[in-house]
């Protein structure tokens, strides 16, 4: 074995490797069955109970809300736990020590969580379908799919930012726990944001998925009234906040890495 020339590190390959590892760890660990399989069933049933009898359009509303709750839980918990597990296993040190910038490792984990969150959303849909029948046909199926994919991107953007907190400190669990419920209520997943006290609105608008989900509902539910501004302002808000999240994540990751290298707490758990 001679020492090798230094190869180019492909960031796409590194991201794919991180996604693959997240999948392998998911499959190997039965505890993930609860958030990924059981929680969406509960969310779907709760949504049905809340909105049954409110009309077929509310069925779509409920599916989207419960699906988003499921996807959010997966993204937030999954992204946080992925980094938390690296701390627990002691693999954060060798991973950070590799030539791949850590943000690409995080991106891979978050992408996997978004994919598994999507499966959760699918389960919600199937549960509501089973107990309440099919919701009305979508007016613009292609636009809905495109926007839905964008919603996943907004979730990933938030997930990356939360992951930075896990790299920063081992005490990030509380942010995750608080963040999950604040998000459920604050973003109008299950209840319209407009029925919340006015002071909560600015908090809700900080989250890209709030905008994206509202846009999705404008697109899927004829006559839907969410934010007063309508579909296009919602979409613009979603794009703008997502860009800000991605930019902030990109900017702070190097600083977070320098901070943990200065503190020397990469192996702490």
């Amino acid at each position: 074995m001679a020492t090798a020339d230094v190869p180019h590190v492909s960031r796409v390959r590194a991201t794919e490797a991180s996604l693959r590892l997240a999948f392998q760890m998911f499959v190997a660990d039965p505890q993930w069955l609860i958030p990924s399989m059981i929680a969406p069933v509960v969310f779907g049933l709760v949504a049905f109970e809340l909105f049954q009898g409110a009309g077929p359009d509310f069925l779509t509303y409920a599916i989207l809300g419960a699906g988003m709750m499921s996807m959010w839980g997966q993204t937030l918990y999954g992204s946080g736990w992925a980094i938390g597990q690296d701390r627990e296993f002691g693999t954060l040190e060798p991973t950070v020590q590799s030539p791949t910038p850590y943000v690409y490792v995080v991106l891979g984990r978050v992408l996997w969580n978004v994919v598994s969150g999507l499966a959760g959303g699918g389960i919600v849909y199937l549960v509501v379908l089973a107990v309440a029948g099919a919701p009305p046909a979508l007016p613009d199926p292609l636009g809905f799919v495109a926007l839905f994919l964008f919603v996943m991107l907004t979730l990933a953007a938030v997930g990356i930012l939360f992951s930075a907190a896990w790299v920063y400190t081992r005490y990030s669990g509380f942010i995750q726990n608080v963040g999950e419920f604040a998000f459920y209520v604050g973003t109008g997943c299950m209840f319209p944001v407009v029925i919340l006290p006015f002071w909560t609105n600015p908090i809700a608008l900080v989250f890209p998925p709030t905008w994206a989900l509202d846009a999705l509902r404008y697109l899927a539910i004829p006559g839907y009234v969410g934010f007063a501004w309508g579909f296009w302002p919602d979409l613009l808000g979603a794009v703008a906040t997502t860009v800000v999240y991605v930019a902030v994540a990109g900017a702070i990751f190097r600083r977070v890495e320098l901070h943990v290298l200065a503190k020397g707490n990469l192996s702490d758990y």
Partner: peptide
């Protein structure tokens, strides 16, 4: 929770 080969595959990719 994964095997040795997959551990090494992951790091091989991170090292390019």
């Amino acid at each position: 929770r994964i095997n040795a080969r997959d551990n090494l595959r992951y790091f091989a990719d991170l090292y390019g």
